[in-house]
Design a protein around this nucleic acid. Structure first.
Lengths: 189, 189
DNA sequence: GTCTATATTTGGATAGAC
DNA sequence: GTCTATCCAAATATAGAC
């Protein structure tokens, strides 16, 4: 059962996130969610129009948390490679702080519900990445590629590494630093 | 309704793949699958022990199709960058030939069923990639990284690009060639 | 706002005729 | 092997008391 410090609404969202993370969407019935939140099933409908709305609300909440956690300020006057490494590691760390949330996000993204919700989970950080690319481009230090491709080269391996961590593999700081460097090499002109 | 050339068993698997691809796992009820396959619901149970087994069988089928399609022979004496580019493009093309299958695979991979099934979808091609890494490593042309990291740098962007194609973006041959080159740069020492 | 009890629907699976 | 008809369990959602 979830901590009393949370509001009932928050407890319900957190319960949904954890059940989906552990056992998938099929296991996240209204009965299971209410039970884990420690409230009655009927109570769910006082806070959300239905199960889908609860899931979507939980996803939005998660997205904004990750956004807040991964966009700390950093030194924009540092060398480009260091800027990329900082941002990349910040993303890894933000997701690492809430692995259930990460897993929920992955599953939600592949569910039919995500169509209702709209964009990918990454829009938030795209701004910082675009600035980095533009700055580096002005100096001729990065390739001439569509921004979408830079984004894919940046995020996709991060997500893949985080997924591996869900099944046991733990990446060391040194390995992550090398990975960030490899990604910079993929960007570099 | 699916073509008569397929066996009933194949029609059921294909129907499941298409429904999951279009509308997600929640929409893939036994009734919906049977209807799309053009058979009665009860018939499903003459071919599969239950819905989960049908889904798992469909996934295994898909995996072996992709394996067959993406491991054509190629010139192992070519330069390393060309070998990587060839393999990378082969993966893209294999998935492009069956987009519904690709989408099903992504969704299946995030479902709770995938735990029963076991490994990731990529094991198949890992052999060719490992050989490439080892050959290039012997000449000092690639970084010193865990194989898992090479795999992530290779596959993750390919999957990300394919996902974008599901929502409309079409990558040109030139863009894909540049992407393959960027990935080689991430591998390169 | 929350609980208990319940209505309603739908889903997975089986039985038995053909 | 396939169909029709049906059972049973489970899931979403609501009603009404506290």
């Amino acid at each position: 059962m979830l901590a009393d410090a949370l509001s009932t609404k928050e407890k319900l969202m957190r319960a949904a996130v954890e059940i989906v993370a552990e056992d998938g969407f099929a296991a996240a019935t209204t009965a299971a969610i209410a039970a884990r939140a420690g409230v009655a099933e009927g109570t769910l409908y006082r806070h959300f129009a239905g199960k889908d709305e609860l899931m979507i609300a939980a996803y939005r909440q998660l997205k904004s948390d990750i956004f807040a956690a991964s966009t700390d300020t950093y030194d924009e006057s540092a060398p480009f490679e260091a800027r990329l490494a900082h941002l990349w590691r910040a993303v890894i760390d933000a997701y690492r702080r809430d692995r259930a949330g990460f897993r929920f996000g992955q599953r939600f993204g592949e569910s039919a519900l995500s169509a209702k919700e709209g964009g990918a989970a990454h829009e938030a950080m795209t701004g910082a990445l675009t600035r980095l690319r533009d700055d580096a481009r002005a100096r001729g230090e990065v390739k001439d590629l569509p921004m979408e491709l830079f984004i894919a080269l940046f995020y996709a391996p991060a997500i893949a590494l985080l997924k591996r961590e869900l099944s046991g593999r733990e990446w060391t700081d040194a390995e992550l630093a090398k990975a960030a460097q490899a990604i910079w090499h993929s960007w570099r002109a």
